[in-house]
Design a binder for these strands. Structure first.
Lengths: 205, 205, 205, 205
DNA sequence: GATGAATGAGGATTCATTCAT
DNA sequence: CATGAATGAATCCTCATTCAT
């Protein structure tokens, strides 16, 4: 006579964390329910007590990642609420930082093959856009204040995102030229972004 | 005078082409030796006559992709040998075009998880850098001619690459905002890149 | 005065009913304790409070089916107590009706593989014979009255049963020729049975 | 460059025979690919070299059973080509004999739950009707010769089939009253059938 | 040069069941 | 009375690979 109620939240947490860890160490491709279970010293069956199937587990992870990123970015936006350009840079920096600090989230949130990600509720991915909205709003504010010179804030946001996502991807897939210091690379990317929206460079785009 | 390659080159070609086709149609995840063989109307064992194992097959494909991209880019560089800025833009455009026209190559060349790509000879990936060198050389020329204003051409090349790779990745994983026209997005990215190296914007990076 | 049955009879009832429903909608093969529980909005463990195991649950269902069939047939026999031939036909008709109206009971009572049914107490199945006894008694009465002409009522009953069971089985497994109207088929079978015992046809068997 | 060709026919035969054996001893429900493999001392994978999946294996078995029955019945029909009534009885006898001698075939051909059998090509089951056609043709001949008195040979055939199928089912599921000698039971059923079509009993059906 | 035979390991998932609470 | 936690064994099926021919 029971409605479904939350079971042992510790195990659920353990499953999610173990999955995240394996995502980093072994990669998405070689991740299996059995392996997660083995890593936890639990039976594979136990996972199904908390997640309907593999997709549901991944979806939960994606949801979680989306929330974390959004929370982080909102915090940053608030912190720099009175300085548009500082906020813009901080948001970009925060995006990259999230990718590097939480590669497992980043991978399933932004790097999954569409054939895979299409199995997850569109809703989750719509939430991803809210991060970009934080940037767009900032750009719009900047335009109003006169410190940002762009034509189309929507387009500009996506161009910015391309830079950010490219940087994170190159770093996560370990394809950055060994002679380049990652931190310098990141800063160059950030500088590039900020300047591109302050110098009127994109205005004719 | 090479001895090691006495096998039927037609079948080898067929294997590579079939694999590429399957990569596009079915995706990386569901690609298997059996499936390749079935698709070719050959026995699975036949593949092993030409490739030691699955990794070797993939490595051959990566090698091939690297060569194709390099050939394309060299052709472009030659075509615009007398106009530095046009060449730079064309190279960037060519990079994106390659990614969109040959997603199967691009994916295994640049988007594979490091756990996977680590199984392939580093040599292959070093070759990837030769593409970037074409850009770097162009930047250097531009600096000499005075039409490009940057501080460190090596760093600038990688920042450019971040933009390009980000754009291709977003498009291939189908994550571009539906309200944005892909072609416009690409052109914005290209504009952004060219201007960032011509306006002295990166000079203080 | 029975001690062994102190459990919530409502839940027990719910379990049995849910099981029957699932038998009809999903079929025997895909019936599981978990599924029953899910369908009831109860935990799977709850079933074990009322039934030792899956076999016990099934056995209870078989028992129940046997009782229902017997009750139905007794009612029919009583209704036609004064007309032997009408009673015979009504009993046969009732048997088929039971099979078609309660396929879930019929299936586990009469169509289970012996490897499965052997796990259930023989006692249950002996009870099945009491239905046939109703028919046999009717035949015997008919013989005494002179309206039925057979040699061995015991044998004749089983021959009749073969027809009835065959008809029900063909209908339940949906193997009747599509060009035949089920109701006509049933009536033909009933006619055939009644005549075979009234025309002396079986007398030399 | 090979079209699909028949592989090791011995193993294929072994798989089919082992499956049949297990069907008899363990029943349809508890039959699994693993068990078949174990029983053969082969790996489960080997089965998939010869059958696409479990359904395909069963379908092959059904096809085989249909062929065998049809061949048997045609042989019988030929043997008694000049005596209609003898042929009719022999066909009925042959049907029952097939069921008892090849219970594994009979089970999957005629006793499977429709939910299961619906997964197999309708074509197979259409062939089942050809057996009945042999009987119908015989009835028609009998009518022409004046030795058979029925109204609708199509309907009569199905009524006959109900008797036959019922008898086989009762015997195979081991539900025949222990006090009845199976052979007598069978003969009673056969007698009943033959007489029902010779005495004009069904004429008003 | 190409294939058929064969397999062990592993994939996701479902099952009946136990046990402490 | 009822449940959540947990599991070992089983389900079908796919995989990369080897080896004798």
């Amino acid at each position: 006579m029971q409605e479904e109620q939350k079971e042992n939240p510790d195990l659920k947490r353990l499953i999610l964390d173990t999955t995240r860890r394996l995502l980093v160490t072994r990669g998405f491709a070689s991740l299996s329910m059995r392996r997660i279970a083995r890593e936890m010293n639990y039976s594979a069956t136990s996972i199904y007590l908390h997640f309907k199937n593999k997709d549901a587990l991944f979806h939960a992870l994606i949801e979680e990642g989306m929330s974390i990123l959004l929370r982080r970015q909102r915090k940053i936006a608030k912190k720099f609420s009175d300085d548009v350009l500082a906020r813009l840079r901080a948001l970009c920096e925060g995006y990259i930082a999230f990718g590097l600090e939480c590669p497992e989230y980043y991978e399933i949130m932004f790097m999954l093959h569409p054939e895979l990600s299409s199995r997850f509720p569109r809703e989750s991915f719509r939430r991803a856009r809210r991060n970009l909205d934080l940037m767009k709003v900032t750009l719009d504010e900047g335009v109003k204040e006169g410190v940002v010179v762009i034509e189309d804030s929507h387009a500009a946001t996506n161009v910015m995102w391309a830079s950010l996502h490219g940087a994170v991807s190159i770093l996560l897939t370990e394809r950055l030229d060994a002679r380049i210091v990652p931190q310098n690379f990141i800063e160059s990317v950030l500088d590039n972004i900020v300047r591109s929206v302050t110098t009127g460079q994109l205005s004719a785009a």
